[in-house]
Amino acid sequence: MDYRVITQEKLPLFLSALRQSFLLAAPVEEEGEVYFRLLEDPSQVYLGPRPSRVPPKIFFFPPTEPLLRYRREGEKWEVFSAEQDPRPLILFGLRPCDLQSLKALDAVFLASPPDPYYAARRENTLLLGISCPEVGPGCFCVTYGYSPTTSEGADLHFTLLGKFYLVEVLTPRGKKLVQDYASFFAGETAGALEAKQSKEASLLAKFVAPPQLTGVKEKLPSLYHDPYWEELAWRCLGCGICTFLCPTCHCFDIFDRGEEEGERLRCWDTCLFKEFTLHTSGHNPRASLSARLRNRFYHKLLYHYERYGVEGCVGCGRCVVFCPVNIDIREVMVEVRRRGSSGF
């Protein structure tokens, strides 16, 4: 791995320079809350403690993805492929959990045969990560074995240390970017690695009793018929916040929009909506809210791992913080460990 440093003053200048050749998106504040937006003014980048409300999966798995366009001419149907914006995109300000979440999505969309839409967007995007300045109230990344400064998955990763950022150069593409914009960086990194380590240690010390993962996967199967899910679902509204804001949730629905002329679209869907599993016959295998809520937790904590060998939850805490009725996956993990038995 290669290292550079960039001063705090030079970072916005670097981002401005990137804007000349790339589409550049980063977290900004809009009406007081943080969202990823195409960056117009690099001084607007939000570098504070709050993560973006909507996760950066929108850039790879957009809420609405046109798959193809069609038009009817008399008896004939013409079909055209959907176009993606060909301009290369740079995402700046991805948190370690955002980077980890791409592992879970890659496992789904890049497994053979790869999804061409997702693959093209992934290929076309450079990932610039940033270490978290604080540990948020919903955060539990340590549960999944990484920390608020983990750079895994990024092309470049920035960690603020005093007045400068340590820049980790993690991939050949990252290396090329640093070379192309060499004037913004300095190579002198003496003491910076140690400083990052002590920053990591001080952030890790801020986690108060994060949930333990041991036993969760083993115990979940024994709890399938437990009344716990029913009681938990009493409080659940049945909205889609936890799934739509989840950086790893990836369910979708495909339909055509327009009759004689239109587009075939792939749109976000969620297992919390009762139509999600509705059969053509009218039968619904997950007719009750408790069955749907249970499915979400089983998927996050067990099914995704069983199927892909990658964790389906990354501990970003979005579902914890934004659930309007405080259904907390950390609490669910604790309950599963307490109630369940392994060896079912």
């Binding site: 909507v54 049945g238 909205c239 889609g240 916040i241 739509f244 804001l245 976000w268 909506f273 309007p324």
Partner: peptide, 8 residues
Amino acid sequence: IRCYACRE
């Protein structure tokens, strides 16, 4: 994001 929380 059409989560329908407002409706629910």
